[in-house]
Design a binder for these strands. Sequence first.
DNA 1: AGTGGTCTGCAATTTTATTGCACAAAATCG
DNA 2: CGATTTTGTGCAATAAAATTGCAGACCACT
Lengths: 150, 150
Amino acid sequence: MDRIDRKLLNLLQEDASRTNAELADLVGLSPSSCLRRIRRLNEAGIIDRVVAVVAPAKAGKNLKAIVTVELERHGEQYMRQFLELVVAEPAVIQAYGVSGETDVVLMLRLADMDEFDTLCERLFRDRSNVARYYTMFVIRTAKETTAIPL
Amino acid sequence: MDRIDRKLLNLLQEDASRTNAELADLVGLSPSSCLRRIRRLNEAGIIDRVVAVVAPAKAGKNLKAIVTVELERHGEQYMRQFLELVVAEPAVIQAYGVSGETDVVLMLRLADMDEFDTLCERLFRDRSNVARYYTMFVIRTAKETTAIPL
DNA sequence: AGTGGTCTGCAATTTTATTGCACAAAATCG
DNA sequence: CGATTTTGTGCAATAAAATTGCAGACCACT
């Protein structure tokens, strides 16, 4: 992991659709060397995967919400149970167990309030061990990247 | 945007490193047709971009934190000013203006507590118009996807 | 200076993406 | 309802890109 690897990773985190020749040029290497480095990064699992990012607006998913959840009972099995429940929902794009007053934080990607309503019904009804939850709707997205600073 | 387009998008959101022939096969189309559809999705901006996802652990960024921030003064220009400040930080991977008591929610990706400490120093010191902030450290990541349900 | 290991660039080869074209399906229009 | 335009499709040829073998360069460690 030298300077060139880091540079490559930064470039690929930005735009992975570039051709190998282009990347090679940007880092100042021959295409073959560049390709071998990228393969090494893949095999080492440093590059976990390559994905297409869909524009939410163009996909009719304009509503984003961040939900903090406090559970009723706090055992490990209750936590696991609740996480299993939320993970199964396609609208839940991030789900974290966290420290502090709050037990779980969810990031939701939805079409509209109706979808939010039915989802809440499903996740936070009486049975599901949720003491309370608090929703923050995203008004403005100032930054949203998958790139890890290297 | 028919059934095949949606299928293609789902596949690409999962793994965009597949060859066109592979994708064509998965959706039951000829390579040329498949390619043309993908290009159409690109040109329409439905596919916003293609990125490599780096494994945080392998990059030495094991600490993730979610921070809720309440500003001192609540005008539009103050909000903008604060967002500009945080957006410039590479460790801030997501930054949202939200509804509710909280004004801003940040998602941080860090190497360790030291980095967290110095970042807080920079973002939340007296000058920066932050009334209070609350940090939740991520203990367990149950789900983390970029894929939008289609 | 010598040696094993790693990395590099070049050029050949293989794989993949891309395009032109003729035809078929669906939508549009008189 | 049939004619016509539009849109989408598969095939085959072409262009572009990725991949590999190989010889030499560089580096760290004796």
